[in-house]
Amino acid sequence: MLSIKNLHVNIEGREIIKGLDLEVKAGEVHAIMGPNGTGKSTLASVIAGREGIYEITGGEISFKGKDLLDMPVEDRAREGIFLGFQYPVEIPGVSITNFMRTAINEIRQYKGLEPISAGDFLKKMEEAKNLVGIQSKLTNRSVNEGFSGGEKKKNEIFQMAMLQPELAILDETDSGLDIDALKIVANGVNALKTEANATVVITHYQRLLDYIVPDFVHVLFNGKIVKSGGKELALELEAKGYDWIKEDA
């Protein structure tokens, strides 16, 4: 589904990702771990298509066989890539309801479908709200405006439930969450899991992986994946820290 080959990314002339390879297939859950500043969030941003400071100097990214690098951000999203943000932004005056309806309809238009009916939309909203356990009132509020850290992260998973992406990349979704919120977020992600979609969880704590169990764990260090393994690798990292990886690398 997602195939990254020999990816190189610079930020302001400095190489952050230095030849990264990653294959993600439908039905899989991957965890990307690593110490701070090793390029985890850069990787997430580049897959989603963020421009500006990121300069791709080499390599390929394809999604469902399509070349992603020439695809605008919104088309990548419409193709089914969802990024759960580490720091979701506030959009004052735009209700979550309006925001989601706009997003869903633009995605539907891209796929040649009619706009969603009001009834179907409301039904979808109810289901998604129940899944993440967010209150009805929240969706009438402006996107992320005045939300607590936990509410913002729940809102990301709520949007994921609304959009039902084929590939969800969750960038440090666990940061700033207490254990209850963490469970809710993890349960949401697990409930949305199917044989047809894939999830990439980016985190530097193993804690989240107690709830979202990965099929593969990758350690990102110094711009490269230096070690890959099963879920037991996460436990090993938890026990031994990252230093042994650094030495190996």
């Binding site: 963020r50 951000v73 919104e74 990548r76 999203a77 419409r78 943000f85 932004v89 997003a103």
Partner: peptide, 17 residues
Amino acid sequence: FYCQQRGISAESAIGLI
């Protein structure tokens, strides 16, 4: 970027904001 990542075009995003 946040809007576009949800599938909303830059133009619509500006309209929304």
